[in-house]
Amino acid sequence: MAEQPTEAGIVLTPEEKRRQRQRNIAIALALAGLCVIFWIVTMVKGAAILQRPM
């Protein structure tokens, strides 16, 4: 049975593979967005990024 854990591990159904792929894409997009945010903030703030008002 594909639904039972085996020594080789769990075999994902096509639907589970689709959901896993969607999650992976979402995580990749989120990480890329975070990188873009840091890049933009650095460009906008310049040296001021190191000066932190309380």
Binding site: P5, I10, L12, E16, R19, Q20, Q22, R23, A26
Partner: peptide, 16 residues
Amino acid sequence: MNRSALVSQAEPRDFI
């Protein structure tokens, strides 16, 4: 063990 506890059934919209 329940399969959903071993394999995530979530889609991105569930996290949203």
